[in-house]
Amino acid sequence: MYVEKFSNLKKLILYAIVLTYLVFVLFPLVWLVQSSFKSMYQALKIPPDLIWIPTFEAYHKALGGGMLKAFMNSAIVSLSNVLLVLVLGISAGYALANLKTKASQNIGFWILSIRMAPAFGIIVPLYIILRTFRLVDTIFAVTVAHLTINLPLAIWLLKGYFEEIPSELAEAAIVDGATRTQVLLYVLVPVAAPMIVAVSALVFLLSWNEFLFAFILSSEAARTVPVLVASLAGTMRFDWPLMCALSSLALIPAFVLVVYLQRYIVRGLTFGAVK
Protein backbone atom coordinates (compact mmCIF):
# COMPACT_ATOMS: atom_id res chain seq x y z
CA MET A 1 0.00 0.00 0.00
CA TYR A 2 1.13 3.49 -0.79
CA VAL A 3 2.11 5.68 2.09
CA GLU A 4 2.71 9.32 1.47
CA LYS A 5 6.19 10.37 2.48
CA PHE A 6 7.05 13.82 3.66
CA SER A 7 10.26 15.56 4.39
CA ASN A 8 11.00 16.23 8.03
CA LEU A 9 10.55 19.94 7.51
CA LYS A 10 7.07 19.47 6.13
CA LYS A 11 6.20 17.20 9.00
CA LEU A 12 7.44 19.78 11.44
CA ILE A 13 5.28 22.48 9.89
CA LEU A 14 2.19 20.26 9.97
CA TYR A 15 2.79 19.39 13.60
CA ALA A 16 3.27 23.04 14.42
CA ILE A 17 -0.08 23.95 12.84
CA VAL A 18 -1.97 21.21 14.63
CA LEU A 19 -0.30 21.89 17.95
CA THR A 20 -1.03 25.62 17.76
CA TYR A 21 -4.66 24.82 17.15
CA LEU A 22 -4.64 22.29 19.98
CA VAL A 23 -3.43 24.97 22.40
CA PHE A 24 -6.42 27.08 21.39
CA VAL A 25 -8.77 24.11 21.84
CA LEU A 26 -7.30 22.83 25.05
CA PHE A 27 -6.83 26.07 26.94
CA PRO A 28 -10.54 26.55 27.77
CA LEU A 29 -10.98 22.81 28.31
CA VAL A 30 -8.14 22.58 30.77
CA TRP A 31 -9.40 25.71 32.45
CA LEU A 32 -12.87 24.14 32.76
CA VAL A 33 -11.55 20.92 34.18
CA GLN A 34 -9.29 22.62 36.72
CA SER A 35 -12.17 24.93 37.73
CA SER A 36 -14.20 21.87 38.62
CA PHE A 37 -11.67 21.07 41.34
CA LYS A 38 -11.74 24.57 42.78
CA SER A 39 -14.22 26.81 44.52
CA MET A 40 -15.77 29.62 42.51
CA TYR A 41 -13.46 32.13 44.16
CA GLN A 42 -10.36 30.07 43.43
CA ALA A 43 -11.50 29.51 39.87
CA LEU A 44 -11.67 33.24 39.23
CA LYS A 45 -8.54 34.17 41.14
CA ILE A 46 -5.81 35.86 39.15
CA PRO A 47 -3.07 35.01 38.83
CA PRO A 48 -4.52 31.50 38.98
CA ASP A 49 -3.10 29.08 41.53
CA LEU A 50 -1.22 26.41 39.66
CA ILE A 51 -0.84 24.30 42.76
CA TRP A 52 -3.80 24.02 45.07
CA ILE A 53 -5.57 21.57 47.28
CA PRO A 54 -8.31 20.20 45.03
CA THR A 55 -11.85 20.12 46.32
CA PHE A 56 -14.19 17.39 45.19
CA GLU A 57 -17.31 19.13 46.37
CA ALA A 58 -18.60 19.73 42.86
CA TYR A 59 -18.17 16.07 41.97
CA HIS A 60 -19.79 15.07 45.19
CA LYS A 61 -22.85 17.11 44.23
CA ALA A 62 -22.79 15.90 40.65
CA LEU A 63 -22.53 12.24 41.52
CA GLY A 64 -24.46 12.23 44.77
CA GLY A 65 -27.79 13.77 43.87
CA GLY A 66 -30.26 12.83 41.20
CA MET A 67 -27.94 14.12 38.54
CA LEU A 68 -26.51 10.82 37.43
CA LYS A 69 -29.82 10.01 35.85
CA ALA A 70 -29.25 12.73 33.29
CA PHE A 71 -26.11 10.91 32.18
CA MET A 72 -28.06 7.70 31.78
CA ASN A 73 -30.69 9.52 29.76
CA SER A 74 -28.11 11.17 27.56
CA ALA A 75 -26.39 7.86 26.96
CA ILE A 76 -29.63 6.07 26.06
CA VAL A 77 -30.73 8.85 23.74
CA SER A 78 -27.41 9.18 21.94
CA LEU A 79 -26.73 5.48 21.60
CA SER A 80 -30.21 4.68 20.32
CA ASN A 81 -29.80 7.54 17.89
CA VAL A 82 -26.59 6.04 16.62
CA LEU A 83 -28.20 2.60 16.26
CA LEU A 84 -31.32 3.86 14.53
CA VAL A 85 -29.31 6.11 12.26
CA LEU A 86 -27.11 3.17 11.31
CA VAL A 87 -30.06 0.95 10.41
CA LEU A 88 -32.25 3.53 8.73
CA GLY A 89 -29.57 5.89 7.45
CA ILE A 90 -27.44 3.33 5.67
CA SER A 91 -30.33 1.73 3.84
CA ALA A 92 -31.94 5.02 2.94
CA GLY A 93 -28.63 6.60 1.97
CA TYR A 94 -27.87 3.66 -0.28
CA ALA A 95 -31.34 3.68 -1.81
CA LEU A 96 -31.13 7.39 -2.56
CA ALA A 97 -27.63 7.09 -3.96
CA ASN A 98 -28.99 4.59 -6.46
CA LEU A 99 -32.11 6.53 -7.34
CA LYS A 100 -30.32 9.42 -9.02
CA THR A 101 -33.52 11.31 -9.67
CA LYS A 102 -33.54 15.05 -9.37
CA ALA A 103 -35.99 15.13 -6.47
CA SER A 104 -33.99 12.79 -4.32
CA GLN A 105 -30.76 14.69 -4.86
CA ASN A 106 -31.05 17.08 -2.01
CA ILE A 107 -33.89 15.76 0.02
CA GLY A 108 -31.68 15.87 3.09
CA PHE A 109 -31.22 19.57 2.63
CA TRP A 110 -34.94 20.18 2.43
CA ILE A 111 -35.77 18.21 5.51
CA LEU A 112 -32.94 19.84 7.42
CA SER A 113 -33.62 23.41 6.45
CA ILE A 114 -37.25 23.12 7.43
CA ARG A 115 -36.41 21.21 10.54
CA MET A 116 -33.74 23.67 11.61
CA ALA A 117 -35.92 26.74 11.60
CA PRO A 118 -34.83 29.15 14.35
CA ALA A 119 -35.60 27.93 17.84
CA PHE A 120 -37.45 31.05 18.91
CA GLY A 121 -39.92 30.38 16.11
CA ILE A 122 -40.61 26.69 16.52
CA ILE A 123 -40.49 26.32 20.26
CA VAL A 124 -44.19 27.15 20.73
CA PRO A 125 -45.61 25.02 17.88
CA LEU A 126 -43.31 22.18 18.80
CA TYR A 127 -44.48 22.31 22.37
CA ILE A 128 -48.10 22.29 21.22
CA ILE A 129 -47.67 19.31 18.93
CA LEU A 130 -45.74 17.29 21.45
CA ARG A 131 -48.30 18.00 24.12
CA THR A 132 -51.00 16.89 21.72
CA PHE A 133 -49.22 13.59 21.25
CA ARG A 134 -48.60 13.37 25.00
CA LEU A 135 -44.90 13.01 24.37
CA VAL A 136 -43.58 15.42 26.95
CA ASP A 137 -41.04 14.03 29.40
CA THR A 138 -40.29 10.65 27.85
CA ILE A 139 -36.91 9.46 26.68
CA PHE A 140 -38.65 8.10 23.63
CA ALA A 141 -39.78 11.60 22.64
CA VAL A 142 -36.30 13.03 23.01
CA THR A 143 -34.86 10.19 20.93
CA VAL A 144 -37.40 10.69 18.17
CA ALA A 145 -36.88 14.43 18.16
CA HIS A 146 -33.14 13.97 17.80
CA LEU A 147 -33.72 11.52 14.99
CA THR A 148 -35.49 14.22 13.03
CA ILE A 149 -32.20 16.11 12.92
CA ASN A 150 -29.76 13.26 12.79
CA LEU A 151 -31.46 11.03 10.28
CA PRO A 152 -31.69 13.50 7.39
CA LEU A 153 -28.16 14.61 8.12
CA ALA A 154 -26.85 11.06 8.14
CA ILE A 155 -28.79 10.02 5.05
CA TRP A 156 -27.54 13.02 3.23
CA LEU A 157 -23.92 12.42 4.22
CA LEU A 158 -24.02 8.68 3.56
CA LYS A 159 -25.73 9.17 0.22
CA GLY A 160 -22.90 11.47 -0.80
CA TYR A 161 -20.31 8.95 0.28
CA PHE A 162 -22.02 5.98 -1.35
CA GLU A 163 -22.07 7.84 -4.63
CA GLU A 164 -18.30 8.16 -4.49
CA ILE A 165 -17.69 4.46 -4.10
CA PRO A 166 -16.69 3.01 -7.45
CA SER A 167 -19.71 1.28 -8.95
CA GLU A 168 -17.51 -1.58 -10.23
CA LEU A 169 -17.55 -3.00 -6.73
CA ALA A 170 -21.29 -3.47 -6.61
CA GLU A 171 -21.52 -4.56 -10.22
CA ALA A 172 -18.90 -7.23 -9.74
CA ALA A 173 -20.83 -8.64 -6.82
CA ILE A 174 -24.11 -8.62 -8.71
CA VAL A 175 -22.49 -10.49 -11.59
CA ASP A 176 -21.52 -13.07 -8.98
CA GLY A 177 -25.21 -13.41 -8.12
CA ALA A 178 -25.59 -11.30 -5.00
CA THR A 179 -28.83 -9.50 -4.18
CA ARG A 180 -28.96 -5.77 -3.56
CA THR A 181 -29.20 -6.30 0.17
CA GLN A 182 -26.25 -8.64 0.14
CA VAL A 183 -24.28 -6.14 -1.89
CA LEU A 184 -25.02 -3.48 0.66
CA LEU A 185 -24.27 -5.61 3.69
CA TYR A 186 -21.26 -7.57 2.50
CA VAL A 187 -19.63 -5.30 -0.05
CA LEU A 188 -20.50 -1.68 0.48
CA VAL A 189 -20.80 -1.44 4.24
CA PRO A 190 -17.34 -2.89 4.84
CA VAL A 191 -15.89 -0.54 2.24
CA ALA A 192 -17.72 2.40 3.72
CA ALA A 193 -16.97 1.41 7.31
CA PRO A 194 -14.65 4.33 8.04
CA MET A 195 -17.25 6.87 6.93
CA ILE A 196 -20.03 5.08 8.71
CA VAL A 197 -18.00 5.17 11.88
CA ALA A 198 -17.27 8.86 11.42
CA VAL A 199 -20.95 9.60 10.83
CA SER A 200 -21.80 7.61 13.96
CA ALA A 201 -19.38 9.67 15.99
CA LEU A 202 -20.95 12.82 14.62
CA VAL A 203 -24.48 11.64 15.40
CA PHE A 204 -23.44 10.62 18.87
CA LEU A 205 -21.85 13.96 19.64
CA LEU A 206 -24.72 16.00 18.19
CA SER A 207 -27.28 14.01 20.10
CA TRP A 208 -25.24 14.07 23.30
CA ASN A 209 -25.11 17.83 23.23
CA GLU A 210 -28.51 18.75 21.80
CA PHE A 211 -30.29 21.29 23.95
CA LEU A 212 -33.44 22.74 22.44
CA PHE A 213 -35.51 19.62 21.90
CA ALA A 214 -34.24 17.92 24.97
CA PHE A 215 -35.25 20.97 26.96
CA ILE A 216 -38.76 21.36 25.59
CA LEU A 217 -39.44 17.67 25.82
CA SER A 218 -38.11 16.89 29.24
CA SER A 219 -39.36 17.87 32.64
CA GLU A 220 -37.44 15.82 35.13
CA ALA A 221 -37.69 12.16 34.13
CA ALA A 222 -36.10 12.57 30.70
CA ARG A 223 -33.61 15.34 31.34
CA THR A 224 -30.32 15.07 29.48
CA VAL A 225 -26.93 16.46 30.51
CA PRO A 226 -27.01 19.75 28.55
CA VAL A 227 -30.46 20.54 29.93
CA LEU A 228 -29.29 19.83 33.45
CA VAL A 229 -26.17 21.94 33.06
CA ALA A 230 -28.08 24.89 31.62
CA SER A 231 -30.59 24.82 34.45
CA LEU A 232 -27.78 25.50 36.90
CA ALA A 233 -27.16 28.94 35.41
CA GLY A 234 -29.98 30.24 37.54
CA THR A 235 -30.57 33.59 39.07
CA MET A 236 -28.90 34.70 42.28
CA ARG A 237 -26.77 31.65 42.38
CA PHE A 238 -24.05 30.52 40.17
CA ASP A 239 -22.44 27.19 40.83
CA TRP A 240 -19.64 27.45 38.32
CA PRO A 241 -17.58 24.56 39.73
CA LEU A 242 -20.63 22.29 39.49
CA MET A 243 -21.24 23.32 35.89
CA CYS A 244 -17.59 22.62 35.15
CA ALA A 245 -17.72 19.26 36.92
CA LEU A 246 -20.78 18.16 34.97
CA SER A 247 -19.21 19.28 31.70
CA SER A 248 -15.98 17.48 32.55
CA LEU A 249 -17.95 14.34 33.32
CA ALA A 250 -19.81 14.75 30.04
CA LEU A 251 -16.46 14.80 28.25
CA ILE A 252 -15.51 11.35 29.46
CA PRO A 253 -18.03 9.15 27.61
CA ALA A 254 -17.58 11.20 24.47
CA PHE A 255 -13.82 10.93 24.78
CA VAL A 256 -13.92 7.18 25.31
CA LEU A 257 -16.33 6.62 22.47
CA VAL A 258 -14.42 8.74 19.99
CA VAL A 259 -11.13 7.09 20.94
CA TYR A 260 -12.75 3.70 20.51
CA LEU A 261 -14.27 4.62 17.16
CA GLN A 262 -10.94 6.06 16.07
CA ARG A 263 -9.58 2.60 15.76
CA TYR A 264 -12.15 1.92 13.07
CA ILE A 265 -11.53 5.05 11.11
CA VAL A 266 -8.74 3.38 9.25
CA ARG A 267 -8.89 3.64 5.60
CA GLY A 268 -8.32 1.54 2.59
CA LEU A 269 -9.12 -1.81 4.18
CA THR A 270 -10.86 -3.19 1.16
CA PHE A 271 -10.21 -0.79 -1.66
CA GLY A 272 -7.47 -3.05 -2.91
CA ALA A 273 -10.13 -5.58 -3.82
CA VAL A 274 -11.20 -3.55 -6.84
CA LYS A 275 -8.11 -4.34 -8.82
Binding site: I123, Y127, F215, I216, A230, S231, A233, G234, T235
Partner: peptide, 10 residues
Protein backbone atom coordinates in the same frame (compact mmCIF):
# COMPACT_ATOMS: atom_id res chain seq x y z
CA UNK B 1 -35.96 23.82 36.48
CA UNK B 2 -34.26 25.66 33.69
CA UNK B 3 -32.12 28.69 33.16
CA UNK B 4 -33.93 31.98 33.03
CA UNK B 5 -33.94 32.45 29.25
CA UNK B 6 -35.08 28.92 28.58
CA UNK B 7 -37.74 28.91 31.29
CA UNK B 8 -39.19 32.09 29.89
CA UNK B 9 -39.76 30.32 26.59
CA UNK B 10 -41.29 27.32 28.22
Amino acid sequence: WGDETAIRQK
